[in-house]
């Protein structure tokens, strides 16, 4: 067993410094499209290259609704792009920032428990959410803990479009949690149903079933984006807008 201790020590500290410092290692995030201004962008956006209609035309360029972007890269890999590609991962936003009543309060800023529910997620969201518990990201250092029982949970983290069979299970998990509680939806499927919903088999996202407080866009959101979303949920990071507007547009 000493071998394992030595092996662990030898690896050194690999954990990201985020949120204290920026994290810019290549490959931690795929980036995402951002709205571009100008007539050309507006025209290209109107041409409809985006299969999920996340990119639309606005008065002075394009507008990107991150709740629908599934990272197909078709917008940037086509000849006539309507968007810029933007690095980074601080993507999470609040659904209704004014609803102070649902906030967890100061007591939960340092330590809280997360119950994760897979409501029909593909393996990618599963893979990314599994990473947050691992040395590179290590949510424990930020006071987040995963719990197997909703009875101890303060945050409900949900991925997937909410399939028909999981609808009731999700509702039940939410109801089993004691207040105060917050719901964080991660991944485009959980935000809008993605390419699976709404349909007869899958819903149009988590907010159809339980009230969502924080949304983490991305397909899948990389581990740092999930981390950011959790920090937004406990008010340790400011939320970001869920749509990207071209400069000069009215919000």
């Amino acid at each position: 067993m000493t071998r394992w201790v030595w092996e662990g020590l030898k690896s050194g500290i690999r954990t990201t410094r985020y949120p204290a410092r920026e994290e810019q290692t290549p490959g931690v995030s795929p980036g995402r499209p951002a709205a571009r201004s100008g007539e050309e962008a507006r025209r290209n956006a109107a041409a409809g290259v985006c299969p999920t209609d996340a990119i639309r035309a606005s008065a002075n360029g394009s507008v990107v609704d991150h709740r629908h972007c599934i990272h197909c890269f078709r917008c940037v890999r086509s000849d006539s792009s309507a968007v810029d590609w933007q690095a980074g991962f601080e993507w999470a936003g609040e659904t209704e920032p004014e609803r102070m009543a649902r906030r967890l309060g100061r007591l939960f800023r340092r330590s809280l428990n997360i119950r994760f529910v897979d409501a029909g997620a593909c393996g990618a969201c599963m893979g990314e959410v599994r990473q947050i518990d691992n040395p590179y990201y290590n949510i424990h250092r930020l006071g987040f803990f995963l719990t197997p029982t909703p009875r101890n949970a303060d945050i409900l983290l949900v991925a997937g479009p909410v399939t028909r069979a999981m609808r009731h299970a999700l509702r039940e998990t939410y109801e089993a949690m004691p207040p105060p509680k917050r719901v964080v939806a991660m991944g485009v499927c959980a935000l809008s149903g993605g390419i699976f919903g709404p349909s007869a088999a899958a819903g149009g996202g988590v907010s159809d079933v339980v009230p969502v407080d924080v949304m983490i866009p991305g397909c899948p959101p990389p581990p740092l984006a999930i981390l950011h979303g959790l920090l937004v949920a406990v008010e340790r990071k400011p939320p970001q807008p869920l749509t990207s507007l071209a400069e000069g547009s009215a919000p």
Binding site: P30, A124, G127
Partner: peptide, 25 residues
Amino acid sequence: SQAAMIEEDLLRLSAVLSGHRYFFG
């Protein structure tokens, strides 16, 4: 931890090559 770091390194490598950690698109 070691295995998870290997997995994450491979995800990062995938993103560097293809732009996406899971080769979407």
